[in-house]
Design a protein around this nucleic acid. Structure first.
Lengths: 159, 159
DNA sequence: GATGAAAGTTTCGTCCT
DNA sequence: AGGACGAAACTTTCATC
């Protein structure tokens, strides 16, 4: 039997409050969800311990820290041997510019989100990627304008 | 002349510490960057006020909150009239399932990241998207396995 | 930018309902 | 499982060097 954390409606309210402001104190969360601080803190710690909350992050303005360019990169591998797959994924994990990576359905094997300062920086990064023997094909799609970024996850039956 | 927030190396250290733990107290940040709390707090408040730090968010386990499916959706519009573009983007902003959206180079106009509970939920969402008159084409690429998610932004000259 | 002190919060253990 | 209380720890803010 697999462990089912089972999030109830109060937990969802806590997560919702935290998504609005991730630095809310327990007292503030408790007030927001109409609970007293004690059970609220117990729930919060449980959510953290069970991994529902994996951590906390500041949302940074990429341009302000010199990362003006976001690129979505589709990658196809030469083959899907364990050696190629593991080697490639290991390489991804060691590239700071790659902030998100998934295997995907469709014609590509991987979809990566890459952040760099500028085109020259991206060129450097692509060369490093092309140097990997297991990489067959790389397609780059540059983000031109952010329309919606880092929206909170929908917690209810929202669509 | 545009405002240049000008982030120095100490600011970058502060942002780096916060990216490791977004709930760090000012005292802890100060210790991590080898500064006393007073100037550290001043810098932190400045970074927040200038929008370098746009907010704080918990990193949630999508599966644990019932969002087991992530889909990358490429959308082409019928035309690029202001009416179509504005209408479409307005619609995106009102869809909770769309957590990221950018215009992109390449054959598609937009790349969206959509989170839903399951295929039935995604089908519902796609129908809503197809119902928009300005949408010409939708291509869905399902995330099969996350290799790297929500990595911290590279702050130095990292590549 | 550093230091030190005071005031205000937060967290957490414990007990009770 | 939620609520209340109290103590300890911590954070922030301020004035001063």
């Amino acid at each position: 039997m697999v462990k089912v954390p089972s999030i109830d409606s109060t937990d969802r309210k806590i997560l919702g409050a935290l998504q609005r402001d991730g630095r809310l104190s327990n007292a503030d969360i408790a007030e927001a969800v109409a609970l007293s601080p004690s059970p609220c803190l117990r729930r919060l710690r449980r959510l953290e311990a069970e991994g529902v909350i994996r951590g906390y992050r500041p949302q940074l303005d990429r341009c302000a820290i010199g990362l003006g360019m976001t690129v979505f990169v589709q990658v196809k591998l030469q083959d899907h041997s364990a050696r190629s797959v593991d080697g490639f994924e290991q390489a991804l994990l060691q590239m700071p510019a790659v902030i998100n990576a998934s295997t995907v359905s469709g014609s590509a094997d991987y979809l990566l989100e890459v952040v760099v300062a500028d085109l020259a920086d991206y060129d450097d990064w692509v060369r490093g990627m092309q140097a990997l023997a297991m990489v067959r094909e790389i397609e780059s799609n540059f983000a031109l304008r952010a329309v919606k970024t880092g929206a909170p996850l929908p917690l209810a039956g929202e669509r």
